[in-house]
Structures are given as C-alpha cells and as structure tokens.
Amino acid sequence: MRNTKNLTAPGSAGHEARERIVRRKRSRMAVEEAIWGYAFIAPVVLGLALFYTLPSIASLGFSLTKWDGLSTPTFIGLQNFADLMKDEQFLRSLVNTLAFTFISVPLSVFLATLLAVLLNAPIKGRPVYRMLYFIPVVTMPIASGMVWRWLFNSEFGFLNYLLGLVHLPQPNWLFDDTLALLSIILVSVWSSIGYNAVILLAGLQGISSTYYEAASLDGASAVRKFFHITVPLLSPSLFFVLVISLINSLQVFDLIFIMFGKDQTMLDATRTVVFGVWESGFKYFNMGYASAQAWILSVFMLLMTALQMYLQKKWVHYE
C-alpha cells in the first residue's frame, strides 16, 4: 500500500476530502485486486468444487442408498454401515490397512531420515546416489508391482534364488498369510523412501551449519548433534512427511491390486479398504456400499490427521 496519509495537515477540510478520495481509491484498488485474485483461483475452485466437493457430498448421500449405478437409488438409511460392521471381509481389510500403515509409515520415515542424513554428508558421487534412491518414486506402481511379483515368486523368484544359495529357508512371500502383508510393506517402503528422503534432504539443507559448529565447539558427539539439532530443526519436514505418508498408506491400492487382485480373487490376507471400495463399486456395482466404505476410511483419515495436528504442538519446532 502506498503511504498517502501525511500529504496534508490533519484536520483541514482539504485533508478530509482527500482522505475520502484516497479511501475510495484504495477500496477500488482492493476490489480490483480481489477480482484478479478470484479470477486466478476460479479454475481451481470450480474444478475442486465440481470434481471433488460435489462428488464427495454426493457419495455421502449415496452411502445411505442401495444403488447399482443404473437404476434410481433407493434410500436405505444406515443399512450399509450396519452391514459393514458385520462384514468380515471389510473388518479384515480395515485391520490390514491399519497394520500396513502403522508398520510401513514409521519404517519408511525412519529409513528416509537416515538416508537423507547420509545423502547430505559430503560423499563422492552424491548426485548419483540421490538419483538412484529417487528412481522407485518415478517408476509406475504398476511396473514395480509386476517386477516385485516376479522377484517374490517362491519357485523362480530372484529373492528365493539368493536365499537358496546361502541355504536359508525359501518362504512363499506372497501367498503365505502372515508374510504377504510384510512383502507389500517391503515394496511400499522401497517405493516411498526416495520421495520422503528428498523432502527431508531439503529440510536438512535448510539447517544452518552454525548450530553444528557451535555444538562441535562445545564438544557434542555426532549422535547428540543428530538428536538435539537435526531432529528438532527437521521436525517441520518430518511432520509433513508423516502426514502425507499416513494418508497415502491408508489409501494403498494400486500396488496391491497389481500384485494380488488383477488376475485372481483377492485373498483376505492382502485385502485393503480401498480395494474393497473398488470391488464393491466397480466389480459388483454396489455404489452405496462402496461409498459407505469410502466414508469410513475418510473419517479415519480425518481423525488421524487431526490427532497429528494436535500432537505436532508437542514435538514440532518452527524456527
């Protein structure tokens, strides 16, 4: 804003008139600026409203109906939700999704932090390493899912071939009930670690070296420096990575679909909530039931994110 206030002596008639003009001018400017602002966000807002908000509200409505996507929906109240609470498959998928999330997210973030610290250290060929670790992120989940499926093959897979060389047991990675989820976690961590590491790396580079120099002068050890300088100053990035990973993990679908559900019936051990949404919606065309599942998942995500937002006050330090 331009400073036009002290051009005339306060209290004079001329001042008042001018003040009014200035105010009008300013408000006109504000209006113009607002119009520009709205014009620029209009496409996004309209897009979001049309393709996000409205469908979300509609799906909340559909969750209270029985609808096959063709005929007119019939209102059935909370029947879908009541059915879901009794649906063994759904409950199992919820457990699977939560187990997947609570193992893979901490693991991925922990490893990504280590990786970021290493990639931040002055080592030879650093750009090459950074690129290598980022490759899984730019690989399509479809492609990596297919390749991992082969690596995991219990008879002809590379993993079991290696285990066989050193005479270790060769488990059935994908179709053993307990191992299956761990195998997916492994692939998921592998594919998400690069993205998380890059975010954390950027956070690390924002930490001024003076802190470390001061700490060194005081004789702090590397471990101490890590926990008392790196972690607190990295906490905003860590927080971001945690929130995003959590949401992504709760939505896990493509990887599992490619590795298990594409050509064959999904087994209970690897079923996730989003897979259930897809199955009910686009295989059985039971849109109401699918919407209900999607909303339960959304509420879960909302609660978790709210919890994280609340907890952030306790551990995230903003400079």
């Binding site: 119009i35 520009w36 014009a39 897009g47 049309l50």
Partner: peptide
C-alpha cells in the same frame, strides 16, 4: 481502464472454464 481489463479477464476465465465443462 485497468479495472475493465480486470473484469474482462475475469469474465474470460469463467468463459474458458464453462467452455471446458460444456
């Protein structure tokens, strides 16, 4: 003058969006 271009641009945006949707 400036104002009018502002309004016009705004209108243009809305038009583009509407066209894209239709």
């Amino acid at each position: 003058m400036k104002q009018r271009t502002g309004l016009r641009t705004c209108g243009l945006f809305v038009l583009i969006v509407l066209l894209a949707l239709s």
